[in-house]
Simulated scan of single mutants.
Amino acid sequence: MERPSTIHGSRVVSIFGAAGPALDEVGLSAWIAQAAPGEALVYHRGFLAVDATGAVSNLTPERQRTLRGVAAAALRAAEQRLVHLVQARLGPDHFAYIAVARPKPGPAGAALSMRLLEAA
């Protein structure tokens, strides 16, 4: 039984596309800073563990480094409680890696800026 995918909604932004430039850590941080709670960003499509590993990836070494940096920044942002990280299965060995914005902690300003810097 196939479940409908929820990542095709209007509140999902895909920056990492096949035809476009790869999302980097700065782009992810900028998105986190301006995203409304509940907005989602697809930061990678593929199989992250394979795509980020040099020996088995089809990506260029530069794109692999960028992907590893974005994945690490997304994890730090989740640890700072700025985003939720989720996955959606698109097909065999093909997933969408999604960051969902959480409500901003406390008043915006220096405190939020420091948390974004720590997450980058």
Rank of each mutant, 00 (worst) to 15 (best):
G109K: 09
L23V: 07
G91D: 00
G17I: 00
A99W: 05
H44T: 05
Q34P: 00
F95P: 00
G91C: 02
V26R: 01
L48T: 01
E25N: 01
P4Q: 13
A55P: 12
P37W: 03
G106M: 00
T60F: 03
A19I: 09
R115P: 05
I7L: 12
G69Y: 03
L75D: 14
R63V: 02
W31H: 11
G106N: 13
A110P: 10
I7R: 07
L67C: 12
L116K: 04
G17F: 02
R63L: 08
A108T: 14
P92F: 04
A49D: 14
L75N: 15
G91W: 12
L48V: 01
R3I: 08
D24V: 06
V70I: 03
H44Y: 07
D51W: 12
R76Q: 09
P92R: 09
A108N: 07
R3N: 12
G9C: 02
L112G: 11
A110L: 14
E2R: 10
R45T: 04
P105F: 00
L41N: 13
G69R: 06
H8L: 10
E2Q: 04
E25Y: 00
L90H: 06
F95D: 09
R45N: 12
V83K: 01
A40I: 08
L85Y: 14
L23I: 11
V100D: 03
P37R: 04
G106P: 03
R65P: 08
E39W: 12
A36W: 06
A77K: 02
L23C: 09
R68P: 08
R65T: 15
Q34S: 11
A96N: 06
G46I: 04
A120I: 05
R63S: 13
A33E: 14
I7K: 02
A55S: 15
E79C: 11
L28Y: 02
R89E: 14
A18H: 10
A74M: 10
Q87K: 04
R115N: 00
A78N: 09
P61S: 07
A120D: 11
T53P: 02
G9P: 02
A74T: 05
Q34L: 04
R68V: 15
N58T: 06
S5I: 13
G46H: 05
A73G: 10
L41T: 04
A74K: 05
H84K: 15
L85I: 12
A72H: 03
A19V: 06
S57T: 15
A108F: 11
N58Y: 13
G54T: 05
L28V: 04
A36I: 03
H94K: 03
A77I: 02
P21W: 06
L48D: 09
M114G: 07
G46L: 00
R68N: 03
A52Y: 01
S14L: 00
E118R: 11
W31S: 14
G38L: 01
A40D: 07
A30Q: 11
Y43K: 01
